[in-house]
């Protein structure tokens, strides 16, 4: 929280009170469930925007286009192009948590 330079981390100060229609029920059991009270909330990749065909807000607003988001299984997607043509790495890969979050070099 205190260390994040972008103010991106959000804490569940109270029990999260999301409306039922704000959540996508068509995910696996642990997908997009709000975290309990008293912990830092995880990013949902703006599920409400993605479901209506929009990019997550941080991707849309990034002035440099540094963020890419998409379906890794779609061979024609921008993210697939990045994965295949750029140097891509995973942060702290040695911990073996298999995140679906990749860093890539722009060059």
């Amino acid at each position: 929280m205190a260390a994040c330079p972008y103010g991106a981390r959000r804490f569940n100060w109270a029990s999260p009170g999301l409306a039922a229609d704000q959540l996508n029920p068509e995910t696996h059991y642990l997908g997009n469930r709000p975290r309990p009270m008293g912990v830092v909330e995880k990013c949902t990749f703006c599920i409400q925007r993605v479901r209506s065909g929009l990019y997550p807000a941080c991707v849309e607003i990034c002035p440099a286009g540094a963020r890419k988001f998409g379906n890794l299984l779609d061979p024609k997607s921008e993210i697939r192009y990045v994965m295949d043509h750029k140097r891509v790495f995973i942060f702290k890969e040695e911990l073996g948590t298999h995140p679906r979050f990749f860093y890539f070099y722009g060059t």
Binding site: R10, F11, A14
Partner: peptide, 15 residues
């Protein structure tokens, strides 16, 4: 019972 919402700390001032 209510969580840290009972304090006035928020995302901006978390300490």
């Amino acid at each position: 019972e209510h969580g840290l919402i009972a304090t006035n700390m928020r995302d901006q001032v978390s300490w």
